[in-house]
Nucleic acid binder design. Structure first.
Lengths: 108, 108
DNA sequence: TGGTTATTTGGCAATATAGCCAAATAGAAA
DNA sequence: TTTCTATTTGGCTATATTGCCAAATAACCA
């Protein structure tokens, strides 16, 4: 068994970290349906443009989304469609975790 | 489409965040094979006991692992086996992301 | 050219996270 | 009881993350 902080675990954690934020999950969900420019996403998210831009560039750095410039707009699109499967998959974990937590509360 | 910071996305992000650390991924991997006490895990991880204990309690709060006290030891076990499927699933994302990043570097 | 719009980036403050050491706690055994 | 071991928690520092505003940049249009 490999120790943590070796490549494998660090890399894996990096990807999870990139997705581990409500706004970024929202963005990935939205981009999974179709590409959007920053202004559209800003409108959907309801935060400052600069904030949304930073979240998007973080996702870009993780290799999850890509960009295409058209006119003054920058269009973001999901580059890794399997990220959606992964999210669906992790939602099961979320639901199971929730169920466990409810059980734990009842036990108190 | 639901806005971020509503329950669904926040909860999902919480679970991902709990897993988004090299040491915690390592711990989940180890506990996926069999239960372990903190001292065993500390040995495997190679960090301070207090650090490992804190990572474990974070996983416990997320509902991912559970404990059983036996003697002076505390045994941790994976409470949500589907977390392993999820990790396998997210590894695909990691690999795809890596491939995309390599492509991006080549383009420069 | 100058002006307008979309986006990114610098800078800052608030907050969260991670790690260690040392102290507190819990249980087992002498 | 005291002592020992395993684990958790308090306290601290260092670092990372988030979000906003304001300034910089980029691409278009007049």
């Amino acid at each position: 068994m490999e120790k943590p902080d070796t490549g494998k675990y660090a890399l894996h954690a990096k990807i999870l970290k990139a997705l581990a934020h409500p706004t970024r999950l929202f963005l990935v969900d939205a981009l999974g349906k179709k590409e959007h420019c920053v202004c559209e996403l800003t409108e959907m998210v309801g935060a400052d443009t600069s904030t949304v831009s930073r979240h998007l560039s973080l996702l870009k750095n993780a290799g999850i989304v890509g960009i295409e410039k058209r006119g003054t707009n920058v269009y973001y699109a999901l580059k890794i469609p399997c990220a959606l499967n992964f999210l669906r998959c992790s939602r099961e974990v979320m639901e199971a975790s929730l169920a466990e937590q409810i059980k734990a509360i009842r036990k108190q």
